[in-house]
Amino acid sequence: MYTLQVNGISHTVDVPGDKPLLWVLRENLKLTGSKYGCGQALCGACTVHLDGHPVRACVTPISAVGEQAVRTIEDIAYDAVGAKVQETWQNLNVPQCGYCQSGQIMAATALLTDNPTPTDRDIDEAMSGNICRCGTYPRIRRAIHKLANGGV
């Protein structure tokens, strides 16, 4: 039995300790916004925040989460930066298939929280772990710059 803090709510789940956080979120807690893409931390579609830091939920065993606060895409609108990121993503038509965008938005929110005026180099370092097969990178970059210039 593991007790988790997810989006400010405490949940207790009865799962094996090696079950990744991603699958606990998706299957046990029915929070399907975080996506499965690779299962090996290669694509970033499963990115969630643990105590504010982006992590790959698909390789994070539930036993490693402990008391760290888990935050997912379903809750990021309640974060001032996250809400701005979502709004800008919509306004610039960033998503295409949209499957990777939960992870992209979690990564971008972490970036802009840590560094409100990232350079292109900063953007590349923060976002290159998140694959977008539709190739929305130019718009992700543009959205982040827009947020940086608009002040988050």
Binding site: T72, I73, Q90, Q101
Partner: peptide, 21 residues
Amino acid sequence: QQRLDAASKVDGSLIYGIDVD
């Protein structure tokens, strides 16, 4: 125009096949 599915693709609410439960 903004994509009609833009909002549901930025808040995790869109249900893809893999999300069907």
